[in-house]
């Protein structure tokens, strides 16, 4: 069955995925809002950057993060200057990587949902004396709810399933960076197929349940 190391990996994974999702909702929402409504010429460029993790192999992200977040990279120099040390091999580092890596999975559904609202409800709110802030919280957010549900579930699930980046910058530290996907990899490498089965099977079931929830809560995620 599951060893204590497996359980540690599971709880670490859930913690990582939850925090990543939370951070992505906080960071991704303004980005999605901007992308949905801006007329800036930078929109395609920013949209492309946000979507990069969709097409890039995780190893590319892992490689650059290892270089940039290391003691000689500019992010690493910055975090060291702040007294935070360097990010690779830390939970914070994984969190940063996961946020970047899962960004499009949250931003895109939310952006689609914002775009689907159209300008009219926002105009109506303005004619009803709602400040831009009230309009955002009382109109845009509730109307974009399906996009948020989709984004949160996809962001969570994608973080749980992340492997390549974690492998490259995690350092396989129990309780800190050894998440379920890495633990499964270790089990396979160590010929502990039974343990691997328990965890891998669990991932299959979890992923299915997550997607099932997505389709049940949100029969037409595209329509926002």
């Amino acid at each position: 069955m599951l060893s204590s190391a497996d359980w540690a990996a599971i709880s670490l994974t859930l913690k990582l995925a939850s925090l990543t999702t939370l951070l992505l909702l906080l960071i991704g929402t303004p980005i999605a809002w901007w992308l949905a409504y801006t007329r800036s010429k930078l929109k395609p460029a920013i949209g492309a950057v946000v979507s990069l993790p969709l097409v890039l192999p995780p190893t590319v992200l892992g490689f650059y993060m290892l270089l940039l977040m290391g003691p000689n990279g500019w992010i690493g120099q910055f975090t060291q200057a702040l007294g935070l040390g360097t990010l690779p091999f830390t939970f914070t580092g994984l969190l940063v990587a996961s946020v970047l890596y899962s960004m499009p999975f949250v931003v895109q559904p939310v952006q689609n949902a914002f775009e689907a609202i159209g300008p009219r409800p926002l105009e109506v709110a303005a004619t009803l004396r709602a400040s831009p802030l009230k309009t955002f919280f009382a109109v845009a957010l509730p109307l974009a709810r399906p996009g948020f549900i989709t984004g949160a579930i996809l962001g969570f699930a994608h973080t749980v399933g992340e492997f390549g980046v974690v492998l490259m910058i995690g350092g396989n530290i129990p309780g800190k960076t050894r998440v379920v996907s890495v633990q499964i990899f270790n089990h396979v490498e160590e010929m502990e197929y039974l343990h691997a089965h328990w965890l891998a099977g669990g991932m299959v079931v979890l992923s299915f349940l997550v997607l099932l929830a997505l389709y049940v809560l949100n029969p037409n995620p595209r329509k926002g």
Binding site: G70, P71, N72, T86, P88
Partner: peptide, 20 residues
């Protein structure tokens, strides 16, 4: 303080990039 590479190459890579 131990960080593990999946193989000896990755262990070296962690050192070469200065992360370890």
């Amino acid at each position: 303080k131990i960080v593990q590479g999946e193989n000896i190459s990755q262990a070296q890579q962690f050192i070469a990039t200065g992360n370890a």
